[in-house]
Each structure stands twice: as C-alpha cells, then as structure tokens.
C-alpha cells in the first residue's frame, strides 16, 4: 500500500479491484450522499400546461412537497436539480426546454408528468405537438395520467427518490457527472419548416435521398412492425413464433388456430368440470 500515491484515489479513472467493488466505505458514503441529494431535490419553477396546475396544487399546503425537501422551486435552471415537464410539449416550446435543460447543473433529473409529456398524450396527433419529451432529453420518471393527481405526482417524486437511492458512487454509470470534463449539451432543435432535431440530420438526409430516387419518404411501411406487438404476445402465450410473419391481411396460420382451439377446449372442459361438481 505504501507504494500507492494516495492522490491517485481521487482520480475517477482509478481502477477499483473487483473484490473492492461495492466496498463498505463506498456504500455507506453512497448512502449519505444519496440521502442528502434525494432530500433536497429542488424542482424548477416551470409549468407548461394543465399538469402544472396539479403541480402547484401538490406544492401547496394540502400535499406539501416541502415534506420531501422539494418546496424550493427555483425560477432559474442554474439552481435546480429537477425539471418537472408538466404538460404538453409543443414544437415551439421544446426549443426553450432543451436550452433550460442544458443550463441545469449536473446531477439533473427530469420527470415527465402526465400523458402529454410522456408520449404526446391526447394531443399527440396535432401538428405542433412533440410526442414525448424523451425524444429530446433523457427522462428519469414517467408519471401517467391526464393529469396525474397530486398524489400520483408525489408517488412519482418518491419513485425518483428511490432511483437516486439506488445510485452508487462506485458505479460511474450512476454518477456520470464525476466523469472527465463537462457533459455534452443536448443539441437545440431547429424550427425550420417543421421542427428538426440536429441529431437526426443524417437520417433525414438519407430519407431525402431516398425521396429523390422516388422511394417512400419518411414512412416506415410497417405491416410487419404493426404485427410485432401481437406477435410478441402470441410468442409469450407459447404459440409458434411463425405468426410473427403474418401480413397485414392477417391470414391466421395453422399454429394459431390450433392454439386457439386448444385454449377453447381447455376452457370448455374446465367449465364442464365445474358444472359437474355443482
């Protein structure tokens, strides 16, 4: 041990031997570290739509987020740890949201509150609505509901606390903000003819090239993918996986028929058994 320069220990790249992983010192340090972090999550004072009203109601006296150390809603992103995306994210609004997110210091967390922020919600089909904030910034907790009640939001906040509790200082994936250098900002979307995510520029180029060649532009013809969910389900039920190849016209093949027939027979026999018992 004497040969070890103790300063090396401060280097995050310092290799931790396998047997030392999950070391007692680190775990209890993690505990204290996480306890203090989760007990003072400062959300950003930032409401988007209907859910924001429920967020305010949660912060008010009846549900009272200060019991969780979250009452200090900061108007500045520089002082906040948590962004509660509370409501419909429009294409026009996603630009400021990404900017705000970039301005938040690490460690930062994002809660997608309500159906709209999670996946577009009832307004998803609209021309100005982003189908989920997670297409632009990483989301830690999703809270379904339209709008989630204050208690549902509190449950989400507790889920976030649990997530923070589960993070370990020993695992660099959990605490990337101690990595080397600042993390990369999320590229700000561009409001062109429609919203354009710079990260997808290459993909758009490919699509455009395809369109120039007269191929379908921007559409994934998805009969196969549409069947995907159904196929997964069938596979789960133990039926033959061949159904996955079913086309959009859904010609049900022998295996499914057999499985279905079997199920029905089984139900029938169960019913009969019950009837005879009575």
């Amino acid at each position: 041990m004497s040969s070890l320069d103790l300063r090396q220990l401060h280097d995050t790249e310092f290799p931790i031997p396998d047997e030392m992983n999950g070391n007692v010192a680190i775990t209890s340090l993690s505990k204290i570290y996480n306890w203090s972090r989760r007990s003072s999550i400062w959300p950003m004072l930032f409401g988007l739509a209907c859910c924001a009203i429920e967020m305010i109601a949660t912060a008010a006296a009846r549900y009272d987020t200060s019991r969780f150390g979250m009452e200090v809603m900061r108007a500045s992103p520089r002082q906040s740890d948590l962004m509660i995306v509370s409501g419909t994210v429009t294409k026009k609004m996603v630009v400021p949201i990404v900017r705000l997110y970039n301005q938040m210091p690490e460690p930062k967390y994002v809660i997608a509150m309500g159906a709209c922020a999670s996946g577009g919600g009832p307004f998803k089909e609209g021309y100005n609505v982003v189908s989920g904030i997670d297409q632009y910034i990483p989301v830690d907790v999703y809270i379904p509901g339209c709008p989630p009640t204050p208690q549902a939001l509190l449950h989400g906040l507790i889920s976030l606390q649990k997530k923070i509790d589960g993070q370990s200082l020993a695992n660099m994936d959990d605490v990337p903000w101690y990595g080397v250098g600042p993390s990369d900002p999320v590229p700000v979307p561009i409001l062109g003819p429609d919203i354009i995510d710079p990260r997808q520029m290459e993909l758009i180029r490919q699509q455009a090239a395809a369109a120039a060649n007269g191929q379908a532009y921007g559409i994934r013809e998805l009969p196969a993918a549409a069947m995907d969910v159904a196929a997964k389900k069938v596979a789960k039920a133990g039926a033959a996986g061949a159904v996955a190849a079913a086309t959009a016209t859904a010609v049900v093949d022998e295996a499914t028929l057999a499985a279905r027939l079997e199920r029905r027979m089984e139900a029938l026999s169960r019913k009969r058994a019950l009837a005879s018992k009575n």
Binding site: G119, G120, K124, E125, S131, G132, Q135, I190, G192, P193, D194, I196, Q200, M201, L203, I204, R205, Q207, A208, A216, Y217, G218, I219, R220, L222, A225, A226, M227, D228, V229, A230
Partner: peptide, 26 residues
C-alpha cells in the same frame, strides 16, 4: 394492432419540406 404513430412515421410523411431546403445550412 397497437402501434405508436412515431414508430410508424418517423419524420411524418406529411411534413412538407420545401424543395429549396438545404439541410446543411439550416
């Protein structure tokens, strides 16, 4: 068969980008 609109339609088949749109100088 449930599917998400954005999975079906990545950039939207009806997003009309004008013909003179230059992606590299957006």
């Amino acid at each position: 068969y449930a599917r998400r609109a954005e999975e079906l339609n990545m950039f939207g088949k009806n997003v009309k980008y004008p013909s003179d749109l230059n992606l590299s100088r957006l």
